[in-house]
């Protein structure tokens, strides 16, 4: 059963996230993929995350597929115009990649080629529109395609945002443009996601809450100061500070959060972003009993 079917059936779904390598050695991502094979319902493959040059998400997604995992190919509007995005989506479908997560993309200025020109010909809503149109057998301008691709479309949302109504307006547009599921920015405060889910209960969509296991108190503070939409509460930072085995405590905190989400049926699943510590994901899955 695939991600789409599991979400439709109401299963509690777990997705993970991996970045293709900066280079051509796919050994590490392959190992990480093998370690979670059969234990997660989908794996996001990031698309030049943080505007850094790497192998593309299409290549990474194909590798996961070959390893027997279900990829969720991320695609942003930063590096490709409407022609390239549609082409990438067609290639994905032809290779058997169905899940696509549409994102606007970080600005090139934060990446390792800050002098690059940001494209932003299409935003996340437009990418969803394009994919929806392709599923009708036509490109954005109504030209016929040979064969009709099929996608299961997702998008992102930031629950901790002021004004939240503005995020929700955009979320509505994403749904209207074809998004069937959402993955959120990492959340650490259960009340944040609880009240967010309450705000959007009428939208009738599937939400996987983002989880980033902490590695240190410093990481939490850094994210609080630098990563938009992430706020780690003081008591969690304190727990990290006091812990002897920081990695383990970070995983403990994540596991408790995930269990509570599942127990209280707050969301439809979780999206685990290990950002560079993918080898810890199997341990976290063990701790949660998945």
């Amino acid at each position: 059963m695939n991600l789409k079917e599991k979400l439709a059936r109401g299963d509690f779904v777990i997705t993970a996230e991996m970045a293709p390598p900066k280079g051509i050695d796919f050994g590490h991502i392959r190992e990480c993929a093998r370690a979670v094979k059969g234990r997660v319902d989908g794996v996001n493959v990031t698309d030049f995350q943080s505007a850094v040059v790497r192998a593309s998400s299409l290549g990474g997604a194909k590798m996961l597929l070959d390893e027997g995992l279900e990829p969720i190919m991320q695609i942003t509007g930063r590096d490709r115009n409407r022609i390239a995005i549609q082409g990438e989506l067609l290639s994905a479908a032809a290779l058997g990649i169905k899940n696509v997560l549409a994102l606007t993309g970080d600005h090139p200025s934060i990446g390792d080629h800050p002098d690059a020109r940001g494209v932003f010909d299409m935003d996340s809503v437009n990418i969803l529109q394009a994919a929806t149109k392709l599923m009708e057998g036509q490109d954005l301008n109504g030209n016929e395609l040979s064969g009709t691709p099929e996608y299961f479309l997702g998008a992102s949302v930031t629950p901790l945002y002021d004004p939240l109504e503005l995020q929700i307006i955009k979320m509505k547009k994403k749904i209207q443009a074809g998004a069937k599921f959402f993955q959120t920015q990492a959340v650490y405060d259960i009340d944040v996601i609880r009240s967010f889910m309450d705000e959007i209960k009428d939208l009738n969509t599937k939400v996987l809450v983002g989880v980033i296991p902490l590695k240190s108190a410093g990481m939490a503070k850094y994210m609080n100061n630098n990563v938009p939409g992430i706020q780690v509460p003081d008591e969690i930072i304190e727990r990290m500070r006091k812990a002897e085995d920081k990695t383990k405590e970070g995983l403990n905190i994540a596991a408790e959060f995930i269990e509570q989400i599942k127990e209280e049926k707050i969301c439809d699943g979780v999206h685990i972003m290990a950002i560079g510590a993918e080898e810890n994901v199997p341990t976290l899955l063990d701790m949660c009993g998945f």
Partner: peptide
Amino acid sequence: AKSLLNGPCGGATNG
């Protein structure tokens, strides 16, 4: 900064 037309990215902090 991204010339978006369908609303904001997720990145604004304190406006």
